[in-house]
Simulated scan of single mutants.
Amino acid sequence: MAVGTRDKAVSTDFSEILPEEIEEKVKEAAEMSMGTEVADDDILNIRNLCEQVLELTEYRGQLSEYLQNRMVAIAPNVTILVGELVGARLIAHAGSLINLAKHPSSTIQILGAEKALFRALKTRHATPKYGLLYHAQLVSQTSLKNKGKMSRMLAAKAALACRYDALGEETTTEMGIENRSKLASRISMLESGFTRRISGTGKTVARHAKYEGISEVKQYSAAADSTLESSSKRKFQEMQEEQTPKRIKVEMAEEQPGTSQASGEKKKKKKKKEVQASVEPTEPEAQEEAMEPPKKKKKKKKVEIE
């Protein structure tokens, strides 16, 4: 292919080989170039280089097929969740599939970003949110603000899948397919802006129901009633019993005549005993009165007569 100089127009037609846009760019570059003749040695070297590039592409395809087959045989659930390339990198970084299964989900999330993690801990900055999982399809297709959440959820599911693949007796792909569908639905929820509140109050739900006009009729459940008497009820009952007036007690006694007579006789006997005890002086008091001189007694009598 001979290229003309700056003054001569390009006479070569590339429409059969290249599309129109690239053809125009090639013609513009040919007009601006000086143009030289290509020697036979240069053509041989160019051909050898093209053959090497083709061989490398074929070898890359063979390696990708081999890696895919091996990952499907060793860790099928991890392959479904993360992909064969990212899964192979995680296994290689951990050392083996069993070592990867021993790691918690927080460690799997940061695998490949150890330098950034220790740098952030030393400088007291924010720690990285993802390592090798950044190249996974589920994380890469999410927006920038949701990549951290998606990497955390994917790491949790990948940890379960690793343990299932490494220690499970049967190698089935049901777990990986189910978890991938859950993560995909979660991505759609995050991207749409509708998030599910796991904890907190139900004020937001009430607001939506107010504007949408949704009203549910709630009935009282009798099963929620407790038959046990609480301590506050008992205390209240005791206070009421203490504060009952005496009239009620008298009326109750009149209603039961047999018991009231017996109780009245007992009360009279008790009162008689109390009066006798108050009238009869004790032994030390009698001795003191005997020791007193009679003059004082006469004076007291005079005073009383006066």
Results as ranks from 00 to 15, higher is better:
residue 149 K to P: 00
residue 149 K to M: 14
residue 151 S to D: 05
residue 151 S to L: 08
residue 152 R to L: 07
residue 153 M to Q: 12
residue 153 M to N: 14
residue 154 L to K: 09
residue 154 L to R: 00
residue 155 A to T: 04
residue 155 A to Y: 05
residue 155 A to C: 08
residue 157 K to C: 02
residue 158 A to R: 00
residue 159 A to I: 01
residue 159 A to E: 04
residue 159 A to F: 02
residue 160 L to V: 10
residue 160 L to I: 10
residue 161 A to W: 03
residue 161 A to C: 14
residue 163 R to Q: 07
residue 164 Y to C: 03
residue 165 D to H: 06
residue 166 A to Q: 02
residue 167 L to K: 02
residue 169 E to P: 04
residue 170 E to D: 07
residue 170 E to N: 02
residue 171 T to L: 02
residue 171 T to G: 03
residue 171 T to E: 03
residue 172 T to K: 06
residue 173 T to D: 14
residue 175 M to R: 01
residue 179 N to Q: 14
residue 179 N to K: 10
residue 180 R to A: 12
residue 180 R to V: 06
residue 180 R to T: 10
residue 182 K to M: 04
residue 183 L to F: 13
residue 184 A to Y: 11
residue 186 R to I: 11
residue 187 I to A: 13
residue 188 S to W: 03
residue 190 L to E: 04
residue 191 E to L: 10
residue 191 E to F: 06
residue 192 S to C: 04
residue 192 S to R: 03
residue 193 G to F: 13
residue 194 F to C: 05
residue 194 F to R: 11
residue 195 T to A: 01
residue 195 T to K: 04
residue 196 R to F: 05
residue 197 R to Q: 14
residue 197 R to A: 13
residue 199 S to M: 10
residue 199 S to C: 11
residue 200 G to D: 11
residue 201 T to V: 04
residue 201 T to S: 15
residue 201 T to M: 05
residue 201 T to C: 11
residue 201 T to K: 13
residue 202 G to A: 11
residue 203 K to F: 00
residue 204 T to W: 01
residue 204 T to G: 10
residue 204 T to Y: 07
residue 204 T to E: 04
residue 204 T to M: 00
residue 205 V to C: 11
residue 206 A to C: 03
residue 206 A to M: 06
residue 207 R to K: 05
residue 207 R to S: 03
residue 208 H to Q: 10
residue 209 A to F: 10
residue 209 A to L: 02
residue 210 K to W: 06
residue 210 K to I: 03
residue 210 K to R: 05
residue 211 Y to V: 13
residue 211 Y to T: 14
residue 212 E to Y: 07
residue 213 G to L: 13
residue 214 I to G: 05
residue 214 I to S: 07
residue 215 S to M: 05
residue 217 V to W: 01
residue 218 K to D: 13
residue 219 Q to R: 07
residue 221 S to M: 00
residue 221 S to G: 11
residue 221 S to D: 13
residue 222 A to I: 14
residue 223 A to W: 03
residue 223 A to G: 05
residue 225 D to M: 14
residue 227 T to L: 08
residue 227 T to W: 02
residue 227 T to Y: 03
residue 228 L to P: 08
residue 229 E to L: 11
residue 229 E to N: 00
residue 230 S to C: 09
residue 230 S to P: 01
